[in-house]
Design a protein around this nucleic acid. Structure first.
Lengths: 210, 210
DNA sequence: CGTAACTAGTTGACATGGGACTAGTCCCGA
DNA sequence: TCGGGACTAGTCCCATGTCAACTAGTTACG
């Protein structure tokens, strides 16, 4: 499951938050899938990895095993509990994890979030509806920022070093920026600094694609 | 394909950038799938909707048709070209589009981008590697901001009203915020304001999960 | 003692994204 | 005039991710 280009063999499996986090946790100690889930929740990382739906978790770990990045250490049956398969990371897994994290950090991935897509189809709404909706979003964003601030100061209170909180710091920064932008647009709209001429737009559309 | 709660029937199909954009374009005029793709590219919206892979486009339109949000207007065969199926929006489609856009604007969707996930597993890297990687990301982000600035000023030059450029404005704002954060972290790291004590972290991990 | 919540893992349906492939048409230059 | 490259239009497969439900045993609580 790997191709080689010019002698440099690269793994085909592409990184994902889920897969990287699993490798990182197994780097720390061998675990069974459910243990991975609990650790992620315990360390409060469930804001960066979607681990609430276990389906992806089990599927991803099976995939990593098939690729040889992790290996079964033991399958222990604790009384009548379902069988737990404990995995450990392989050397290949350690190398790939380092490779993935480098790419994920260094290359911003083009993503297609819903909000800008909705923004580009504003003509379907009235300015009044738009304004009300922006206010709803703003409130939700503000809540998120507050929650991040709280968890940041809680973790700082525990004496955690700053590098251990960078992901929350980052999320806080971009969420706050989004909130600020939304607020400025809402203000412009309220004060009539954002002319809403549906006709001009329609005319442009006619022009461009007859 | 719809459930009703307390008499208020809501559609099961959940919105997506792709689906909303299709409905919006068909609201403007009937089109066949390939025409939708061209129109999106022509209007420069391919930064907010991933339309380069046609597979999703055809699948989504088939789904919308099955749900009754769009309908086949005609299937015309232009000489020896493959058969083109032209779709038009239905009344249900218009209502659902308005509903979707309200939700997509008003409710920030929890997303799990790669960057924070990678940030939370920094221990796999050396500070030197991390710094080099941040610089790569910063350069890429700066390029994006420049490209957005350029397209904004080009569109403004054409006389397009500001509401027609909100999505680029938004992307510019959040991308610039991300770039600024990355730069500040890189600077802190360079000036040793970001202590990198792997041992302290490991000790914490031991404490929390024995 | 019963029921609710937790532990663990599984399954199926469905959506998205990337890449490749077919197959015909049109244009441009050697 | 012939061949290559670009465009038109649609299809298929694979990998991955998300949601929701289902099983089935365990612990806790009233």
């Amino acid at each position: 499951m790997s191709t080689s280009y010019a002698g440099c063999s690269i793994s085909i499996v592409n990184g994902s938050p889920m897969a990287l986090t699993i490798l990182a946790l197994l780097h720390y100690k061998p675990l069974h899938p459910y243990g991975v889930q609990r650790l992620i929740q315990q360390w409060g990382k469930d804001h960066v990895v979607n681990v609430n739906q276990r389906a992806s978790l089990y599927r991803t770990m099976e995939r990593l095993r098939a690729e040889g990045l992790i290996a079964v250490r033991e399958t222990s049956r604790d009384q009548a509990y379902p069988e737990r398969t404990v995995y450990e990371i392989t050397e290949a897994g350690q190398a790939v994890a380092r490779q993935w994290i480098t790419v994920m950090l260094g290359v911003p991935k083009p993503e297609f979030p819903e909000f800008p897509a909705a923004l580009s189809n504003l003509l379907l709404l009235t300015p009044q509806d738009f304004l009300a909706t922006l206010d709803r979003r703003l409130a939700a964003l503000q809540e998120r920022v507050d929650a991040l601030d709280e968890s940041l100061s809680r973790e700082a209170g525990l004496g955690l070093p700053r590098i251990a909180m960078l992901e929350s710091e980052y999320l806080r920064a971009v969420t706050a920026a989004e909130a600020q932008w939304v607020r400025s647009i809402a203000d412009d709209l309220r004060d009539n600094r954002l002319p809403w001429d549906a006709e001009t737009l329609a005319a442009f559309a006619e022009d461009q694609a007859p």
